[in-house]
Design a protein around this nucleic acid. Sequence first.
DNA 1: TATATTGTCGATCAAATTAGTAGTGTTTCA
DNA 2: TGAAACACTACTAATTTGATCGACAATATA
Lengths: 148, 148
Amino acid sequence: MLSQKAKYALKAMIALATQEEGDLLQAADIAERQNVPRKFLELILLDLRKHGLVRSQRGKFGGYALAKPADAITFGQIIRIMDGPLAPIPCASLTGYRRCADCRDEKSCAVRRTMREVRDAAAAILDGTTIADALGAGAHEARAAIGA
Amino acid sequence: MLSQKAKYALKAMIALATQEEGDLLQAADIAERQNVPRKFLELILLDLRKHGLVRSQRGKFGGYALAKPADAITFGQIIRIMDGPLAPIPCASLTGYRRCADCRDEKSCAVRRTMREVRDAAAAILDGTTIADALGAGAHEARAAIGA
DNA sequence: TATATTGTCGATCAAATTAGTAGTGTTTCA
DNA sequence: TGAAACACTACTAATTTGATCGACAATATA
């Protein structure tokens, strides 16, 4: 399961991507637009900043902006920061491998093998979808909705 | 994340599938073979029985057996019983749909759209992998391991 | 029938995780 | 100097997870 935190982080990054290059968006604005608790969102943005996805400016008229182009930031990066590895089970993870305590023979474990397949499929999608894609597709859907 | 419970359930089902048609396997045996806590496993088997995946016999020389052929039981069925929907987020679930409380416009939500893709990919794998597949591949690996 | 054995089931529990909230400090600009 | 914004620490309530315990019910065999 994706945590609320990760979901809020994705929504916040998408909101930041709608800004003009160089413009800042304040936590309170994002919170209101995306309908998420402001203080909780601040923690999330802080975390994203510490991981280099977002930059911030303090003081009056401060705020947040993407630290990199929207097409260089993937869903996978954001989710891993917030929730950890994508794999359904640690023994099937590339980025956060941990052995199962109860596993007798990892090589022949069908659970692990199948969970690795699931991980790979999820990673292909999440590491292949950028914040820019999210915007683009959204715009596409919006255009389609008005018949354009 | 796959819970321990779901992982144990998968392992137990695989263990049951190794038995001859009609033979029973006792909870204590499964627990020892698969290295899982016996009492916890009993709860899991009970749950699997109530959902029709396993049958049980009480009393001396009692035990458990698959209630259906191993190739008619998928990872997806087992995981949904133990952990609920496969989707990373309820608004992207087919079997357990629930709206996000904070969502302003579900139609244009890029998070939802992408999580639906992840769900579909995971479901394709998990609903397409049976307990029989798990055994078969395991045997193949085993044969490969001994050079056969 | 007695007894050992095995599944059934309800209650309970400790630890971890989740989803926040509160408050204080720090920076910046007008 | 003061208001506005981010930074950071600490705390907490509720939920979930991963079990454990013990009494009960069914069954096979001696």
